[in-house]
Write a protein that binds this DNA or RNA. Structure first.
Lengths: 142, 142
DNA sequence: ATTTATACTTGCAAAAAGCAAGCGACTTGT
DNA sequence: ACAAGTCGCTTGCTTTTTGCAAGTATAAAT
């Protein structure tokens, strides 16, 4: 093999830069939010769709699909009829945890109005990067 | 002040989540690439525009503007006529370094075809997160 | 049998991205 | 002196992506 200077910047890849590559996959307003929710333990479509940011359902379906083909997420059927499946992070998806963590650290320090659920502020161990407001059962209406 | 339960999710803010907040600002394909270039030492418009990802100039201008009003970047005039200025990261922008670093770590491990300039692979101290291929003067055409 | 729920898909309007060309204020070459 | 660049944007326009609302298929609940 004579010249393999640089991997061909595929149609889905602007450049060999790791940042550019990551952004080609994750660089939009929703993808990392569903990753966040996966880290927060969400597994089913309805959970993601019910989150407080109200992601449009067509985009949710699309993002789950893209993350799946990219190998960051698995979808495994938990029932056949109608076909339903659960989503989970693969190791490659799990590997985004430090990115998430740093993004959260940054947001907490530099974005005014950032909040975390009181339940979590106490012991960061429970929720390493504050899923917050992610609706946990009950605990509303006094 | 009676009830300040939660900071008003401003028009530019989908939710009080730090991840959502960060994504409202940085969640697109170009913004973090500009930040990367700033980390790599680029200062002038032409340098950013000349990068290998070929960002459209209208988007470059827009992103620099957005980052500036968001307080992540400063633009200071280095000459008056015609007015020209240099861009640099503020402390808040600098604070994105760990995010960048982790994004790079992730990309290097999980994106096939990711490359770093040979000059840098040796001593990570020089270039903490591999600007790579970012054109350094000369060194082309044999 | 009718209603309700879940997990999507589809259609369409609005917003953002991308491309090329233009423009003002110099600078450089001849 | 004057034409031809260069630099840092802006403008106009087409294409793509987003966001919203409504629809669909299957099944459980009433």
């Amino acid at each position: 093999m004579p010249a393999a200077r640089r991997p061909a910047p595929s149609p889905t890849r602007r450049s060999p830069c790791p940042v550019a590559g990551a952004l080609d996959l994750l660089g939009d307003k929703w993808t990392l939010l569903v990753v966040r929710d996966l880290f927060a333990g969400m597994k089913r479509y309805g959970e993601f769709a019910g989150g407080m940011e109200k992601i449009p359902t067509n985009l949710l379906a699309d993002r789950l699909k893209r993350l799946t083909v990219a190998g960051l997420v698995t979808s495994s059927a938990y029932q056949d009829n109608p076909p339903r499946h659960e989503y989970a992070l693969t190791p490659a998806g799990e590997a985004l945890r430090p990115v998430m963590q740093e993004l959260v650290n940054w947001g907490r320090r530099h974005l005014p109005g950032t909040m975390v659920r009181a339940e979590f502020t106490g012991n960061p161990a429970d929720s390493p990067f504050l899923p917050a407001w992610i609706k946990l059962p009950g605990r509303r209406r006094k």
